[in-house]
Design a protein around this nucleic acid. Sequence first.
DNA 1: TGGGTTTTTCTTTGATTTTTGAAAGCGATG
DNA 2: CATCGCTTTCAAAAATCAAAGAAAAACCCA
Lengths: 225, 225
Amino acid sequence: MERKPQVLIVEDEKEIAKFIDLELQAENYETIVTYDGVTGLSKFRELNPDLVVLDLMLPVLDGLEVARRIRKTSNTPIIILTAKDNVEDKVLGLDSGADDYLVKPFSIEELLARVRAHLRRVNPAVTGEVRVADLVMNLDGREVFRDGRRIELSAKEFELLELFARNPGKVFNRFEIEEKVWPEYTGGSNVVDVYVGYLRRKLERDGERRLIHTVRGVGYVLREE
Amino acid sequence: MERKPQVLIVEDEKEIAKFIDLELQAENYETIVTYDGVTGLSKFRELNPDLVVLDLMLPVLDGLEVARRIRKTSNTPIIILTAKDNVEDKVLGLDSGADDYLVKPFSIEELLARVRAHLRRVNPAVTGEVRVADLVMNLDGREVFRDGRRIELSAKEFELLELFARNPGKVFNRFEIEEKVWPEYTGGSNVVDVYVGYLRRKLERDGERRLIHTVRGVGYVLREE
DNA sequence: TGGGTTTTTCTTTGATTTTTGAAAGCGATG
DNA sequence: CATCGCTTTCAAAAATCAAAGAAAAACCCA
């Protein structure tokens, strides 16, 4: 999941929309801005963003209704943003499916922190994730990504990469590697070499810099640099 | 699955703690109250509640630290409750792993609504619904819908899908699956494979994209994408 | 209730696909 | 230039899938 998270902004006050838009972009989110409920909803369905910032007082289709309709088919976090500062409205907003409720005038810092908090949950980053160099390994999902693009690995390839990724900078000799990844084995072949080769071919496409380095006479290391 | 959601309250002001406690119980939650950070954390580890209401100014161990330590091992929602009403503290609280931040004096109705909102996400049992990809599972009614159209599943098929749907993106190996869906069994067959096959046939009609993916050498995952 | 019917559950089997590992020759390196 | 590492090739092994049918359970109707 290395692509930018997409945030949909639905807010009819243009200055505020612009303001939020710029701030979110500065935090490296991809943004889509819409100015009324119907357009917001249709953009939502079209793009399926990672989070929605939603004003309540919207032309054409009320914000609450937008929240409800989104909730019908999706769990995407919704942060409601509004001038209404009374408890009943907050309760109503939250019970309509919103995940959070911020009252205007709000601090942009707080909004950004809340956006971060919600996105943190949603993306699998929260659970067993190992980052190394420009790779992201999702251990639960047994996936490896680079630049948001998925790299297909076989079971053994994944285990081998996991060993390296969990211990960046540590040199393993062939015997250690064989012990961990091929425990059932009575060594004596060059499996390790071959599999390191497989990984290199898949991970180091193009003439990129080395990821898994050979330590002559010893074994292999994964180095980030 | 049908048990009450458990809420852990960590708050040193006894009257406030008592107040929240009673209100939550009135809403049919099971509550545990603790008055300092260390006890709160150990209760958390012992009971693994569904949600935590956490005061910031705590004796023995600061609330922020409690939040951080909980986050180290768990995604359980944390609502911070405090008298500190400045943006920096909010940002700090949220960035320490909290999911929400409420300033005292707060309205109990708002707290309850926020508790509902967070539990709705985490614990589908609260709404009785699990949504995943373009499917909606109604757990109470043991029904599955796509585009409002009902998909007929047998009991075992439903249980298997429920396991996947509650943990989208997580790879299960055959043994884990058998443990959960066929607990009475002494494995040694390929029931899992066969039932995954059944689900696929029913859920992936036409040449649609895969829902349940096989991870060769490991098991199966439900991925939304 | 009880006997027949339908549905669900689970096993077996064999075809198909993918992964795995050994060997061998080439290439790089100190 | 001799050793160690790399890559390719290919056959064996393993994993997965789908189909078919036996066994069990659930259901129905008299």
